[in-house]
Design a protein around this nucleic acid. Structure first.
Lengths: 195, 195
DNA sequence: ACCCATTGTGCAACTTGTTGCATAATGGGG
DNA sequence: CCCCATTATGCAACAAGTTGCACAATGGGT
């Protein structure tokens, strides 16, 4: 149950409309918690009904109309409670590693190697982007706890991207190196499982 | 749509029953793709209906009875197709970083610091465990492509755990260092958002 | 005045993942 | 022989996340 709390955090950092939140979830917050606009609108509805947030009062109807939300006291309290909770680290779920493992059984094809390269580039680009954010943040210095914490989280994002780039680099080197069978890549080594 | 392919991979590596699969998903495979037994049984049903796997023939009813599955040719083909697919890296979703960021707004409490320490220990323990696997695997050497690929994936797991340990280490140092306000930890710095 | 791309909100249907529970076979201990 | 813990499969209800689409306002271009 993290999405509502992600939204509360975002709204506390800066009151926003649904679309604005969506945009922010594509940037800073989205680096470690992604969400589609649908999820966000739905959750905003629930949070409002629960009395955790409210839409800034406005005249006229709301449909198709920008609606800005702010966090109410109970919302802030709920967030504080949640921050102190105990929760197990969530089990990793990564399709790329899974595909690599599958390739160990059915054979590593050129497509997969290409895909590994592509991912390396993507992660590399993101790493550069994050580094740029870090550079800009550094100029303003981190005085408040909030600044320091955000810097920590950003550092986490950077380290994580670095992990991916390094690991993919190693994987590509390993796959290209030890078995450069001339001609085409060797398909599965064992005969079909089924008679 | 990764779960069915994770199961196909596991079954190709070694034909198993539902419960066995569940166990294996708690170990090697589960390091990068977790699944509960419910998910697995449901998916086994679907895969069988789709003609990708079959239960080894047996007399007598099946209820409460061990049922072993093996992959059929179409299943292997489907897996091969999937391995070559193009897929975007999945957006990260990590509650711990989220909580830290939330703490930047509502204040970093002792509970959260304790939680960070706990996670560091957990990741540290897992790192040790993976290293042990690696040591054991190294003895048998990696001859086949399959062995080499599994070693790569394991290396990924290790690097990832190492990332966590290091980052948490840094975070704890940073939180403990720069602002050791005597007495209790300072709660939220700014006044409530709402009047 | 009209078109239309953009911004913004939202519903509905679907897939995926989780939780709690029910039920059947099996084999060892008293 | 019966109890019961363990192994094993499974249903049902729910929660979370995704996809596709619909619709309303706005503002610039022509």
């Amino acid at each position: 149950m993290s999405l509502p709390h992600a939204i509360l955090t975002a709204l506390l950092e800066k009151p926003s409309s649904g679309l604005e939140l969506t945009r922010r979830f594509d940037r800073s917050i989205g680096y470690f918690w992604s969400a589609t606009h649908q999820q966000i609108y739905r959750e905003l509805g629930k949070l409002e009904k629960a009395g955790f947030i409210r839409a800034l009062p406005t005249d006229s109807p709301t449909r198709g109309r920008r609606k800005e939300y702010e966090v109410l006291v109970p919302g802030r309290e709920e967030l504080g409670r949640w921050v102190g909770e105990r929760e197990e680290p969530r089990a990793l779920r990564d399709p790329l590693m899974l595909r690599l493992r599958a390739a160990g059984v059915v054979g590593v094809g050129d497509d997969l190697v290409e895909e590994l390269r592509r991912h390396r580039e993507l992660h590399s680009a993101r790493l550069a982007e994050y580094r740029e954010f870090q550079r800009r943040d550094a100029e303003r210095g981190h005085g408040t706890e909030r600044d320091r914490v955000q810097a920590l989280v950003l550092q986490g994002g950077i380290d994580l991207e670095r992990f991916w780039v390094n690991w993919l680099e190693g994987a590509l080197a390993d796959l290209a190196g030890p078995a450069p069978a001339p001609g085409a890549a060797a398909p599965g080594a064992s005969p079909p499982t089924t008679p």
